[in-house]
Simulated scan of single mutants.
Amino acid sequence: MFELIQRIPEPWRQLTDLLIAPLAWIPRMQHTLWDFFFAPGPWWLVAAKFLFLLFPALLVVAAVWCTQLSIYTLPFRSGRVQFIPTMMLTWWDAVRAVWLYWVGMFRFIGVALGWAVTFSTFVAKLVLEVIRQIVLMPFTMTGRMTETYFRPGVPWVAFVMLVFWCVLEAAIFSYTLMPTVTELLADLVGGDSTARFTGAILYFFLLLLVMGSFACVQTLMDAVRKREWKFIVQMVVVELFV
């Protein structure tokens, strides 16, 4: 704009300077604001400037342009006496809007910080509770198992004898079936070497099979006692296969 003024002939230049005097300082103000906002600095300072001052600065620039341009309309306005107080009230509203914006931003930051502190406290308590539960889990499980095992009315002698019989029966069947299983695996593999854990795996599956058969017998007895014919038929079929 100043380069354009320099091209105006000298007799008209003073008049032009006088006419654009209300607007001549606004571009310099905008350039100053631009340098202020985009000046290098710490990230928190730049963020604070953009967060708290950018929108008020834009409002001020727009208000200044509107106010200065309205000066040229004063000679042609019929209600110029009421226009000036109205413009002053508009500036007051702009200042009030900036103040409310700052108050709202501070309230927002306060709420965000409070939420962050509350959430951090919740996460810390959750982590501590998880650690406490993990540390106390063996003791809790031991206490529950002890409470269950030593509850009155449980036939512990019969239960221990049943478990011992299952272990013994599984061992006998494993010893009996081990040559057959070894020969079968040798035929499948194509050599004399068998798997290293064949005996343990065979014993484990036979133990599950024996314990499952006794569980089926107990279920069959309960079904007969309650006359539940559907479960009786199911358990008989299962026992036949077992």
Rank of each mutant, 00 (worst) to 15 (best):
V217N: 03
V157C: 01
P152N: 02
G212F: 06
T180Q: 11
V233T: 10
T176A: 12
W156P: 00
L208Q: 05
V236S: 09
L168H: 09
I131V: 11
P155Q: 07
P152M: 11
V238T: 10
R151Y: 15
R144L: 13
V233M: 13
L208H: 04
R151V: 14
C216V: 11
F139S: 12
A223T: 03
Y203P: 01
E183C: 15
A170W: 05
A215Q: 03
F173M: 03
G143P: 05
T146C: 09
V189P: 03
V160S: 08
S174Y: 02
F214I: 08
V237E: 09
G212H: 02
L185K: 05
Q218I: 12
V163K: 11
V210Y: 04
T140W: 13
L207G: 05
E129G: 10
V130K: 01
I172G: 00
K226I: 14
W229S: 14
G153F: 07
I172R: 05
V157M: 07
C216F: 06
Y203W: 13
V210P: 00
L206E: 01
L202W: 01
S213E: 07
I232D: 03
T182E: 09
T148K: 09
I201N: 08
L202F: 08
V237N: 04
A158R: 10
L207C: 07
E228W: 13
